[in-house]
Design a protein around this nucleic acid. Structure first.
Length: 225
DNA sequence: AACGCGTGCAACCGCCTTATT
DNA sequence: TAATAAGGCGGTTGCACGCGT
């Protein structure tokens, strides 16, 4: 039986107050992102460590870019989703200042609908056969541009993930020839505030990608190298 | 003005992965 | 090598807000 991540008794839940935010910011400014489990107590917060981490990463971090997503960002999210499925953290890693939660929310609230509206199944990035195939397929400006996003089966972490990835990669690879001006060089960008944590993340991403390449047996795009 | 409905987003939950002992 | 702790991730929920009726 797994222990809960924190003592549920006596911890606040729900929306963060300004005072709590300030305590968290002050503490991290003074001590850095240390051990999340002990941070709440040290910072004088009645919160679960996970909750503190989430609040910091998704909202309080100084390098977070807030506001609307640009068309370029939209395009990139869609293409990366075609390649990677619901790996929001990896996708967000390609969008400086954006968090996985933000990307995930944006996908679920905007982009999914957008894809559906142009006749593309957001789960597999294939054209919905019941709908007429549009001539122009740019998703951020559907009426003007073109590209095809056929791709993977249902994004799933457990079943057929490699197949999905290779399938998606192959499709996008095929299309990539027609991707005018889109930067699909997926080298991990290390933020200026890079730390050992970021380096670890990068290494982890590299590892995962290599797994795909090695396990697949099918030539796929080599990402994050 | 009041109500219902849909949407967007912050936050939580539970599982998985990684590190440590 | 196994057990445990901690971090990280994706799915989901719940609430606030805006809009239409």
């Amino acid at each position: 039986m797994r222990k809960p991540c924190c003592d549920k008794e006596g911890t606040n839940k729900g929306a963060w107050t300004k005072q709590e935010d300030q305590k968290l910011i002050d503490y991290i400014r003074a001590h850095g992102e240390g051990c999340w489990r002990t941070l709440p107590k040290a910072a004088g917060l009645h919160r679960c460590g996970k909750s503190c981490r989430l609040r910091w990463i998704n909202y309080l971090r100084p390098d977070i870019k807030r506001g609307n997503f640009s068309e370029d960002e939209e395009d990139l999210i869609i293409k990366l989703h075609a390649l990677l499925g619901n790996r929001w953290a990896l996708i967000a890693g390609r969008l400086p200042g954006r968090t996985d939660n933000e990307v995930k929310n944006y996908w679920n609230s905007h982009l999914r609908r957008k894809l559906i509206s142009v006749g593309i199944d957001p789960n597999n990035h294939r054209m919905n056969q019941s709908l007429p195939r549009p001539q122009n397929r740019c998703l951020s400006s559907p009426s003007t541009s073109s590209e095809s996003l056929s791709a993977p089966s249902k994004p799933s972490k457990t079943v057929g993930e490699d197949d999905q990835l290779s399938d998606a990669a192959t499709c996008v690879e095929n299309e990539a020839l027609g991707l005018h001006g889109l930067n699909l060089d997926l080298t991990m960008a290390v933020p200026s505030s890079s730390s050992s944590i970021e380096k670890k993340k990068q290494q982890s991403a590299e590892l995962k990608t290599r797994e795909v390449v090695e396990n697949d047996g099918v030539p796929t795009l080599l990402l994050f190298r």
